[in-house]
Design a protein around this nucleic acid. Structure first.
Length: 506
RNA sequence: GGCCCGUUCGUCUAGGGGUUAGGACGUCAGGUUUUCAUCCUGGUAACAGCAGUUCGAGUCUGCUACGGGCUACCA
């Protein structure tokens, strides 16, 4: 079997799109799992719409998600092929077609054509280019060319073929009758070849074995196959992926969804989670595993199991997967990742998020770093998105003596507590803490033993004491557990917060 | 309009003639926990419709309906 080679063909006309990411992912998984390789090909033939910033964004986005390209999967920027630099190559093939009378110049103006299109629409007929210039007089054509009249180059649809059939790796046999096609434009001029043409030349030059792309390209496939045949090239295997959909089942779009990968990254989704989620949108193993590392995906991926129907982008499931990935991390990894996140370009570029690291003091200081780590440990398993963490950490860094919150939150029906009863609860807790031995180990576990014992002896219920205590320590309605808060704040800070609570309640 | 493609719980999906149609997310209820989250238990909920083939159809065939994609001198 010949070598497996796929291509990543983004068009740098917008920021790295979630749909592009999914297509690249499937190409990556397929090539990687088959010991093949992937070629990065920038489809930037549309000079008006292509921009360098988009190109950079796409390239770095692909790397951020852990998808690589190149002979050795090194994702080198020098490996990137630009269609804009291959105009000369395309030109030769266009000239060949012209010389063989397989293509021709067409002088019909867009205005004329649009008129015909509208007319066909009105008469409820399909529009086809009427082949006005297909067999035009050569001399006339040359004269117009010499006169510098505007023209395009069209492919001469063969008349001896009636239909094109190809076997799609995802959906099986697909047949399109040639009567559905017309003499399509392959180039604006000799130096400006268009998409359907460039793709064929490139795929051949790069020995692409598998073309894996979105379903929206199915209708381009017969045109490309015609060209492959025309030049006598080997035809790659096509695999058309189902589309990612908006909630209303239309193709995923900017108007109805966030579509930029960077936006999701800025929102605190992990690249691993994004990849995991995207992989499952249109493909799955038959077992019940939901969380996959990239390695596992590579190992298990197969095109046979790619679905035909489109899949709606469900952010709730993404959130769940993201949380699973966060739970899987140990605390030092979480610490590293959250710092990376706070300092990432995605966050800095976002108008929505502002995470001043100065809040945490100088993190080069071991003490500060350790405290942050401990605080993160208390917050980790309750975070779905990295973007929530900063706010959830705030309570650990506010001025103990000046904690501000509404005493309404001391009210709890089940615990039978309120701002009034809180004074008693807090005084009790304060007393317990103040009478601890010098040698007492101020940890959640030890504190639990002591508190449970003393509370029982005093005839209270655990919640009656511990709920208000938690509120006093956190100043918040919801927070990590009471004992954990005591431990992280330590004796001194805990007492200051308890006193502040008493002060507020009186 | 034309062509092409698709259709199992709200969502992602398992399933390839005989299943109480399974799992996950969400949601709801209960439990654990000092609150929230986590965690545990349980519930809810689907084969688009109609014919046909067959002893038997979610699984095969046809038709209908619905949905989507494409229909550029964009990619």
């Amino acid at each position: 079997m010949s070598e497996i080679i796929v291509r990543y063909p983004p068009s740098p006309t917008g920021f790295f799109h979630i749909g592009t990411a999914r297509t690249v992912l499937y190409n990556f998984l397929f090539a990687k799992s088959n010991n093949g390789k992937a070629i990065m090909r920038m489809e930037d033939t549309d000079k008006n719409r292509s921009e360098k910033q988009y190109e950079d964004n796409i390239l770095s986005g692909i790397q951020k998600l852990g998808m690589a390209w190149g002979e050795n999967w090194e994702s080198s920027r020098t490996d990137v092929v630009y269609q804009s630099e291959r105009a000369g190559v395309y030109k030769k093939y266009i000239e060949q077609l012209l010389a063989e009378d397989k293509a021709y110049y067409c002088f019909s103006t867009p205005e004329e054509l649009n008129e015909l299109r509208e007319k066909a629409q009105k008469e409820k007929k399909a529009f086809r280019y009427p082949e006005t210039w297909r067999n035009a007089d050569k001399k006339l054509v040359q004269e117009k060319l010499n006169a510098g009249e505007k023209s395009v180059i069209r492919y001469k649809l063969p008349k001896d073929i009636t239909e094109i059939t190809f076997t799609d790796a995802v959906r099986g046999e697909v047949t399109i009758k040639l009567t559905e096609l017309d003499d399509f434009v392959i180039a604006k001029n000799l130096d400006t070849a268009l998409y359907n043409f460039c793709v064929v030349i490139d795929d051949n030059d790069m020995k692409i074995s598998h073309v894996i792309r979105g379903e929206d390209h199915i209708s381009n496939t017969p045109k490309q196959i015609l060209l492959f045949k025309e030049f006598g090239f080997d035809i790659p295997t096509f695999a058309h992926l189902p589309l990612i959909l908006n909630a209303d089942k239309s193709k995923l779009s900017k108007r109805k969804n966030k579509v930029s990968v960077d936006d999701y990254l800025a929102d605190g989704f992990l690249p691993e989670a994004l990849v995991n989620f995207l992989a499952l949108l249109g493909w799955n193993t038959s077992d019940e595993q939901e969380i996959f590392t990239m390695e596992e995906l590579v190992e298990k991926f197969s095109v046979d199991r790619v679905h035909k129907g489109g899949a709606i982008f469900d952010i709730e499931k993404l959130k769940w997967i993201n949380q699973e990935w966060i739970k899987k991390m140990d605390i030092s990894e979480f610490y590293t990742r959250i710092l990376e996140y706070w300092q990432s370009e995605d966050v800095k570029n976002s108008e929505k998020y502002n995470f001043p690291l100065t809040t945490f003091g100088d993190l080069n200081s071991e003490k500060n770093a350790l405290f942050l780590k401990e605080a993160l440990a208390l917050v980790k398993d309750r975070t779905k998105q990295l973007s929530e963490v900063f706010d959830n950490l705030e309570l650990f860094y506010t001025d103990d003596a000046r904690l501000a919150y509404s005493t309404d939150i001391y009210f709890h029906k089940k615990m039978k507590t309120s701002a009034e009863t809180a004074v008693e609860s807090l005084e009790f807790a304060k007393n317990v803490i103040e009478h601890l031995d010098e040698s007492f180990e101020f940890t959640a576990d030890s504190l639990k033993t002591v508190f449970v014992e003393k509370i029982k002896a005093a005839g209270f219920k655990n919640g009656y004491i511990l709920y208000p205590l938690r509120v006093a320590l956190s100043g918040a309605e919801f927070s990590p557990g009471t004992l954990e808060l005591l431990e992280i704040f330590g004796k001194e800070r805990s007492l200051v917060r308890i006193n502040r609570g008493i002060e507020l309640c009186q």
